[in-house]
């Protein structure tokens, strides 16, 4: 049997375990999160970073043997069970609207109301946190709302923008450039640097969007 994963070097102090087999897979993600939990707190490991069907581990290479870490990741993946994190539940109120909403509706061939209902009708799971402080990569987007990201990212997409890009959904934690499309806005706070755990959401959490209004 061939291995269903690849481990590559990410410089001298990190390894990337990639278990993706085409499109994002929830079962594999649950196994990865279980592996991440089992690695957290290991002496010498600085960071355990779940991505979308991948996991990066960063460590002090003068304190941790790289070959040993590679074996640990491989064995850990093979034996990881999709136990699933309990995950907290979040309801996030969204005022739908803004300049992209109509464009998205036109691009996917739905009415604005249908776009809003499909976006708010889905149950999302936080697959990973990253890129920006506290930014959640949400899986579970209705495939009918899937549309390619912009070729050129737009500057200054505002904090609180509720966005979709490719098959993923997310929320902007800070005002920053993004190639994703905005469907609305929320006041939900995703990041507070004064907290020990600064990100509000965590991988495994469940998110539902509530329609607080639709502006046209």
């Amino acid at each position: 049997m061939t291995d269903d994963f690849i481990i590559s070097d990410a410089g001298t102090g990190a390894l990337l375990l990639d278990v993706a087999a085409g499109a994002f897979d929830e079962g594999r993600q649950a196994r990865l999160l279980a592996l991440a939990d089992s690695l957290a707190g290991t002496v010498g490991i600085d960071d355990v970073v779940p991505g979308m069907n991948n996991l990066m581990v960063a460590f002090d290479p003068l304190a941790v043997d790289v070959d040993e870490m590679e074996r640990r990741l491989a064995d850990g993946w093979r034996s990881a069970a999709a136990v699933g994190r309990p995950g907290r539940q979040h309801e996030i109120a969204v005022v739908y609207g803004g300049p992209d909403l109509g464009d998205v509706a036109a691009a996917v061939g739905l009415s604005i109301d249908e776009v809003v209902e499909r976006h708010a009708g889905a149950v999302y799971r936080v697959a990973a946190i990253g890129a920006m402080p506290g930014f959640p990569y949400l899986s579970g987007l209705d495939p009918a709302l899937s549309m390619p990201r912009r070729a050129v990212p737009r500057q200054g997409v505002p904090k609180g923008a509720v966005i979709v890009g490719g098959g993923q959904a997310g929320i902007m934690p800070i005002t920053a450039p993004s190639g994703w499309h905005s469907l609305g806005h929320t006041d939900f706070d995703l990041f507070d640097p004064d907290r020990d755990a600064p990100a509000t959401l965590a991988p495994g959490d469940v998110v539902r969007f509530i329609i607080a209004g639709v502006e046209r």
Partner: peptide, 11 residues
């Protein structure tokens, strides 16, 4: 197409 993944300085 690559799925989003962790990166470190130096990448």
């Amino acid at each position: 197409e690559l799925l989003s993944h962790g990166i470190v300085p130096g990448t």
